[in-house]
Design a protein around this nucleic acid. Structure first.
Lengths: 339, 339
DNA sequence: CTGAAAGCGCTTACAG
DNA sequence: CTGAAAGCGCTTACAG
């Protein structure tokens, strides 16, 4: 049988309330009693029953990570960070994918979101893009009164968020390409539902304008962050007479940048000699393709960690505070100076 | 306030026991009563409190997925399958990474495993490689009496497992390379702690022997399934005079195969024209590198799904039954016939 | 077919 | 500093 608080109390010769006090580090226990109870608990290998504790406190000690079809490279880092923060607070992480892409209407999205959240016995929710920008999801969360932290570039609906400055990062990456002599720079946009996608494009455009270089419509292609969309976008950008081709392509994430490198390979275009390529995120993928990807390092792990930390904090006043983390331009083999 | 079973009972004019019967689909309820209670529960948007139910039944409705530093591409597919099976059974999936690599001794491993499992309130555990082959982990699981299913190629300690026939798959892939005219075939082995690594090598060697081709020691390199180890192994295999170079390399997983392609790129060796490369797993990575990888498609998603299905089954007699799932050779651009 | 009582293993609120 | 009682929201075992 599992050891219970009663077993510990009996063996220690105290009431269960005292055991409870010791285990929860509550005050008002004689130091000697505390030591004794601790020793007995260790000896008996006692661990409190979470269901019982949860029932008494109406907490679950569970945090949910909710995501919608992200690339595994991205979500695995968020997840890792979230788990680390959970462990430190003795929480566990529950993972819940949701598929809202097929949902046509707002009402449909609300319904799908409820199906997941209604039965989810958690103390808090971490929302990843694009769900963190979805009005329907945010509305349901609010209605249900579930604590949540958004992983997103900007504050919304007074919900706390953890993110980074996508606009500036894209600005700096573009500046880097410009500094290497590139002017005909192609850009592949991310999924329209992700607020970061718009910000990355904005940063790109601002850098171009600042440098006095026109953004050519034909050099901007629409993607959706998936590898497949990157293939299609790359084909659009590269299937033109050589003199009209971009000398560099800035893809809004690493998966699409990997696609550009693949398509270039298929078309016999040498990367980086004839085409520089850069991405965004610095997921593990960036280092396992050839040439390795110049990209913006997002602190993805840390985002997951901070978001979760926020959720498990004792203080319940987590409305509205947002954290902006640092990024870094990672220069690798996929970009070279224009000859 | 949250709606409870008492609220439903009151509004329906029955006892909470009757509501409980209806919700759990127990017999001995008049059809009319059943309908009525269901309607009220729906109307009130009632969902049972899992902690309360858990305390009463000593179940948690939680399954844990336990892994040790896998590639995100692999674990994300297992996870997806596991979640799907959890949903169908109204369970939730908790993810628990463990790091046993640093552990020197068996006792150390036992200690680390206990730290995770002692406080893990789950009804079952899914073990992925290499933890599924770790004696210390299996011993702790047994001692704690936690139900578990191993994702592994072969049955062990009478624990149920879900896997595939790695030996035959590697055999067939090698046959494929031989059929393309390759004889100087390099092989990169996986991590020694993974039982699948040995089986893959065995399948490779058997195919070579069957074809009457010698396995050359210099053409076998040791890896550990990581991209980095693949880079090192590829350098070993390729940094030799051209006539001594393999014409094809069979890496024991996709990450290492991607590394071979990178190294070949760095060394100016054209893939597939001068070097064919194939991998194992068919993770998402296989399709996002260039050239796309010829590889063995493991039913990874399905493994996660079946393992979890086994765990949430009502029947408690899940000792020892193992499932072997099918594989498939995926032919893509990274392999070509020897000229 | 239905329900009242007891109990799962904790914590909260109170008394001493 | 310590403990006895009540209660969290369910299910199990029993009675009718």
């Amino acid at each position: 049988m599992k050891v219970t608080i009663t077993d510990v109390a009996k063996k220690a010769g105290v009431s269960i309330k005292t055991v409870s006090r010791v285990l929860n580090n509550e005050p008002n226990v004689a130091e000697k009693t505390r030591e004794h109870v601790k020793a007995i608990a260790d000896e008996l290998r006692y661990f409190p029953n979470l269901a019982a504790r949860g029932l008494a406190t109406s907490k679950s000690f569970l945090i949910a990570l909710i995501y919608d079809n992200p690339t595994p490279n991205y979500i695995s880092l968020i997840q890792r960070g979230a788990i680390e923060a959970c462990r430190e607070a003795r929480y566990h992480l529950v993972v819940e994918p949701m598929s809202l892409v097929g949902a046509a209407s707002y009402d449909e999205k609300v319904k799908l979101t409820r199906e997941v959240l209604d039965r989810l016995p958690v103390d808090g929710v971490i929302l990843t893009p694009p769900l963190s920008d979805d009005k329907a999801v945010l509305a349901v969360l609010k209605e249900l009164g579930v604590k949540s932290v958004r992983i997103a570039p900007k504050n919304e609906m007074a919900l706390p968020c953890v993110g980074m400055d996508d606009e500036t990062a894209a600005y700096e990456m573009t500046q880097f390409l410009l500094s290497k002599g590139h002017e005909r720079i192609g850009f592949i946009q991310g999924h329209v539902d992700h607020s970061s996608a718009g910000l990355r494009y904005a940063g790109f455009a601002r850098a171009m304008r600042t440098a006095g270089v026109d953004v050519v419509d034909d050099l901007v292609a629409q993607g959706d962050f998936s590898y497949e969309s990157g293939v299609q976008a790359a084909r659009e950008l590269l299937s033109v007479p050589q003199e009209a081709r971009p000398t560099a392509i800035f893809a809004s994430n690493d998966d699409m940048a990997a696609a550009v490198i693949s398509v270039a390979g298929q078309m016999g275009i040498d990367v980086p000699c004839s085409l520089s390529v850069c991405g965004f995120d610095d997921t593990p993928l960036a280092r396992v393709i050839w040439p390795a990807l110049t990209t913006v390092k997002q602190p993805i792990y840390k985002m997951g960690y901070q978001a979760t930390k926020e959720l498990v904090r004792k203080a319940d006043d987590l409305s509205g505070n947002s954290q902006i983390l640092d990024f870094e331009i990672k220069v690798r083999g996929s970009v070279t100076a224009l000859k």
